[in-house]
């Protein structure tokens, strides 16, 4: 069976926006079977199968090649797939799901404005406190790459799967790497973004797997869907 498998976010704003952009492109996605199920179809496109998955699973399945196409955030692609450019290609920026991945420190660290300041503050912290400065995040890989590029080495990441912004205030971390869309939560938790601390400006992307087994039919279908979505995003062009 040569079918194109498309991964679509299974809940929330991300799912609604995804279904909306597909609909605008003339690709109506409907659930098949039970309304609470996780399988779907594209009306009039029998060779495509839709799977409703969490955004993180979509990134993972694109990496392994279990699905051909998917909609997910660039932050998850960069975080979860070490050699992302070899495993997947980001075909279209979809214009929703905007979120920046940022480095934030306590606002009271008046001496720390840049990553270079953080490097020095981290080294001094380790010498003063006998252990490394902790950075709470659910993005350890993005953090490591960005910190290494800025020469920050005296720190350790601590895993944080929710309410990351609160970690410094409750003494679980000194700094954080997290997504932020408004910045209001940061301020409420006494945190501030470093002036050169934007790791990634992320949004939802249409992503193709380079590792999925691709027949001629799926390849053409994949190109058609991409083209239709592209036209829906930029009607004039």
């Amino acid at each position: 069976m040569d079918r194109l498998i498309v991964g679509v976010p299974s809940k929330g704003r991300l799912m609604e926006d995804t279904l909306e952009i597909f609909r605008a492109a003339g690709l109506v996605i409907e659930k098949t079977g039970d309304e609470r199920g996780y399988r779907g179809a594209m009306v009039g496109v029998p060779d495509a199968a839709v799977e409703f998955l969490s955004a993180g699973e979509i990134a993972r399945h694109l990496q392994s090649g279990r699905i051909h196409l998917g909609v997910t955030g660039e932050d998850l692609i960069r975080e979860q797939i070490p050699d992302a450019d070899e495993r997947v290609s980001c075909l279209l920026k979809l214009g929703f799901g905007h979120a920046n991945v940022i480095v934030a420190v306590p606002d009271c660290w008046l001496d720390v404005e840049t990553m270079a300041d953080l490097e020095e503050a981290g080294a001094l912290f380790a010498a003063e406190h006998g252990r490394r400065m902790r950075v709470a995040t659910k993005y350890p890989n993005l953090t490591r790459r960005f910190f290494a590029a800025h020469g920050v080495v005296q720190y350790r990441t601590v895993e944080s799967l929710g309410a990351t912004e609160g970690a410094p205030a409750v003494g679980m971390a000194e700094a954080i790497v997290d997504i932020t869309s408004t910045g209001a939560t940061l301020k409420a938790n006494g945190l501030r973004i470093l002036s050169d601390g934007i790791i990634l400006r992320s949004e939802a992307n249409l992503v193709a797997s380079k590792t999925a087994i691709q027949g001629a039919k799926t390849a053409i279908l994949c190109a058609t869907i991409t083209e239709k979505l592209g036209a829906a995003l930029h009607p004039s062009g």
Binding site: P106, C108, W109, L124, E128, H129, P168, G171
Partner: peptide, 15 residues
């Protein structure tokens, strides 16, 4: 601005 985290005011002022 609240005092948040383990770095003491003395450490911040020193730097």
């Amino acid at each position: 601005i609240p005092l948040v985290g383990l770095r003491r005011p003395s450490e911040i002022v020193q730097r």
